[in-house]
Design a protein around this nucleic acid. Sequence first.
DNA 1: TATTGGGAGA
Length: 608
Amino acid sequence: MLPPAAAAAIRATAGSPRAVRRVHARLLKEGLADLLPAPALLVSAYARSCLLPDARRAFDDAPRRDLYLYSALLAAVSRSSAPELALPLLRRMLSDDALRPDHFVLASLASAAARLRSLRLGRQLHAHFVASPYSADDVVKSSLIDMYCKCGVPEDARKVFDSIGVKNGVVWTALVSGYASNGCTGEAIDLFRSMPERGLFAWTALISGFVKAGNNTGAVGLFVEMRRDGVRIDDAFVLATVVGGAAELAALVLGRQLHGFAITLGFLSSMIVGNALVDMYSKCSDIHSAREVFGGIIVRDVVSWTTILVGEAQHGRVEEVLALYDRMLLAGMKPNEVTFVGLIYACSHAGLVQKGRQLFDSMKREYGIKPGLQHYTCYLDLLSRSGYLSEAEELITTMPYEPDEASWGALLSACKKHNDTQMCLRVADNLLELRPKDPSTYILLSNVYAVNCKWDSVAKVRKIMAEMEIRKEPGYSWIEAGRESRMFHAGEVPLDIGEEITRFLEELVSEMRKRGYVPDTSSVMHDLEENEKEQHLFLHSERLAVAFGILKSPPGSVIRVVKNLRVCGDCHTVMKFISEIAQRKIIVRDASRFHHFEDGNCSCSEFW
DNA sequence: TATTGGGAGA
């Protein structure tokens, strides 16, 4: 038996990699490392220090594999970034060591199934659990509740919930969060209100569920209510969550208020709040404040670095992105798969083919990260945008993933841009076969076929659109004016100030024409006369919003607009003209990136 | 000896 003092020493290492290694070395030297329960304790200690490879090694070095050892490693694996590794471990446990899973093992496996979103595995575990001697265990039940919610079937979670006699806080919050994140707002609120005690944990679960379901306005409202209720904010999770909601809403005024609030509560140096604020400022087009907050985070992790890096990338600041990456490596930080999405994306939007190629290679070679479909799509975009069309086509057919709508779409826009007619038609046919979901893809396809006079294909595209009842999602844009935000819909002139806006836009257009503006109506899908098409463009929502902004804000201030779709080519041109004529900096966040318009130019260098 | 719920990046 391991002396109690030695067991206590292992437990006391609490998340410090150096301490675990030191204690492990001492145990080896004193010949205690194999005494039970040292192996299981070491596995857990390594796992708590985020040293999964070391935990695995400790597992492999153990003289005997028992349930304790398995449950320690399974708990670590199911919490890790690769929960799928729990499955081979389970098979090994069942066949090589002939061990039956107990409630500890079942709880961890259910949590792995939740993270893998594997309803099949989850249901199998549930069946096994019900037939096992542990079928009354509430910890496994809370894990199953979470699994059903994460797999999108909160009604099944409810059945497990109802089977629990005395419910603790974990059980309640698991289901509240599950209802909310699946968009079952009413159920979430009802359950929340019927909780015997509503602590910070429950509020955080509810609010984060709202944010996950995209109900950001609701989340902010709940946060206000929580404050009114006088709930003490002991930890920073809820702030990070609600700041994330403000980021999605692009609500800069609200975001600034939350920032001030974080300072008041003393969470300014908190990493998770800092990370959320960096993302919020970046999504609210205020990249300067994002940089400032990033500079103030004392202990930065890979998420902090990746957040600011992706922010700079979306704002088109390639030099900053590459400089940040160097600083990140110098600081000893290991980039992950998200970091590489940001890096390759930045290179793609700046046409840095060699640099992007080098990064794509180093991801696998130096960091052992297997490129995902998203990486291939970014890389494909980089090659094809920069004119390496045949290499891109070769890549799309040889890459280890089935190309999706985004991959073919990227290739199609590129060969359209580079006027490779034959390839355009080949790619378009492939894309059409996928029966894309995104209406803008059909617009692109229809344009490509129309330009090449493939009228039968144009007809086919239109027929599919009609069949699938695909209509282009209506465009809308919003802009913050004072404390509230104002929304503009394409083609709809607001009653109160519409006249003022249209008059102003007309003035702008006539000045633009003097400077050489010719409307580009190729993005208008409808069968209309040319002047009617121009009228359509004239009322695109971002123009209404920008005109409103210029009219209603102090001269010289920055105009920030958010749009739900991508800006069309013509609006992009118009924004450049307006920034020059009105002498205003205009920042538009569209569905894919940011455009900073200033003195007739855009930060995206025509890459979007 | 171990197990469950809320958090930040695409």
